[in-house]
């Protein structure tokens, strides 16, 4: 099995596409953090700034067109700002962990790239005809498919780690290495303002995001295995991802949508206390994703095992 996985890793690593993706991943991550630093305005008096923010948030809440998601977000921010002034807790000075937390969007980029790699890993063997020599070896088809799946998952995990490390590295150049003990104000699952360790929140967000990434990887992998067409696999997966983002909003109105993977695939919603529906919890989302992963993986296995390889 180790041999099979190292074969698959060799095939991923030796492709040009992989290196283009890794380059883009690092360039975009580094670029985002640099841009953030360039547009940053120095804060002289945090109390005055917070009062200003409170006014702005209150103004925003009066606008009717605000989407439910935006509304909740503004409310949360308002609550934290009020709490700060009340308890006289200054915002934490800029540090790499807080910066990483703010760039949760980078995780979506990892998802997109992981979809592209996963879409190719099985269908490419068919289009190049190499599937024939791959299958006439003393290994069951299940093992061969599984080794491919594990390799893509490992590669996606590496991309997530690269984003984390690059983001941390670039921020550390601007703000220093940061203190593992730094605490900041967050809303807990019950909606109360609480002091939490920033480093642990960051690790939690990036670490748990592996599950949504894996669910898109599994989707793309399954489509590519079943249809043997990588373009379709990328297309369908990206379409679902984009449509999925707008479904998060609809989920607040239509309750059964919460059982679809979309509203569950953004872990940052839980870090910032913005669940699509009040009854949705982090463990609910993780369970839903795990079920989808199992179903997609099972489907690709069933099709791959049975198929006549022409």
């Amino acid at each position: 099995m180790i041999g099979l996985i190292s074969n698959e890793m060799m095939k991923i690593v030796n492709r040009k596409l992989t290196w283009i993706i890794l380059f883009l991943l690092i360039a975009i991550t580094a670029g985002s953090f640099v841009m953030n630093k360039l547009t940053e305005e120095p804060v002289s008096d945090w109390r005055a700034e917070q009062s200003e923010l409170i006014e702005r948030y209150q103004g925003q809440l009066e606008i009717d067109e605000l989407s439910p998601q935006m509304y909740a977000d503004t409310e949360n921010k308002l609550q934290i700002a009020n709490y700060r002034l009340e308890k006289d807790i200054a915002p934490v000075s800029e540090n790499p962990w807080s910066a990483l937390l703010r760039f949760s969007g980078l995780i979506e980029m990892v998802i997109i790239f992981a979809i592209v790699i996963a879409a190719d890993v099985v269908s490419r063997e068919y289009t190049s005809g190499t599937i024939k020599l791959l299958l006439i070896r003393p290994h069951s088809r299940a093992k061969i498919l599984f080794s491919k799946y594990i390799s893509v998952a490992v590669f996606a995990l590496c991309m997530l780690a690269i984003v984390f490390v690059t983001g941390y590295g670039v921020s550390a150049m601007f703000y220093g290495f940061g203190n593992l003990g730094t605490k900041d104000l967050f809303l807990n699952a019950g909606g109360e303002v609480t002091e939490m360790n920033v480093f642990l929140q960051t690790v939690k967000m990036y670490g748990l995001s592996f599950l949504p990434i894996l669910s898109y990887v599994t989707l793309s992998f399954a489509i590519s295995t079943i249809l043997r067409n990588s373009a379709l696999a990328v297309g369908i997966s990206l379409f679902i991802m984009i449509v999925g983002n707008s479904i998060i909003e609809a989920t607040s109105r239509i309750s059964w949508l919460k059982y679809l993977p979309f509203a569950n695939s953004d872990i940052s919603l839980y870090i910032f206390h913005l669940p699509a529906r009040p009854e949705m919890t982090l463990s609910f989302s993780l369970t839903v994703l795990a079920v989808y992963i199992a179903v997609f993986a099972g489907l690709s296995w069933m099709v791959f095992k049975k198929r006549d390889t022409a």
Binding site: G3, K11, N14, S128
Partner: peptide, 19 residues
């Protein structure tokens, strides 16, 4: 049909690992 983006040696190594 072999892996065109790998070298001949990598191809053989690939099949050798499967046995």
């Amino acid at each position: 049909d072999l892996y065109k983006y790998l070298t001949g040696y990598q191809n053989l190594k690939h099949y050798a690992r499967m046995d």
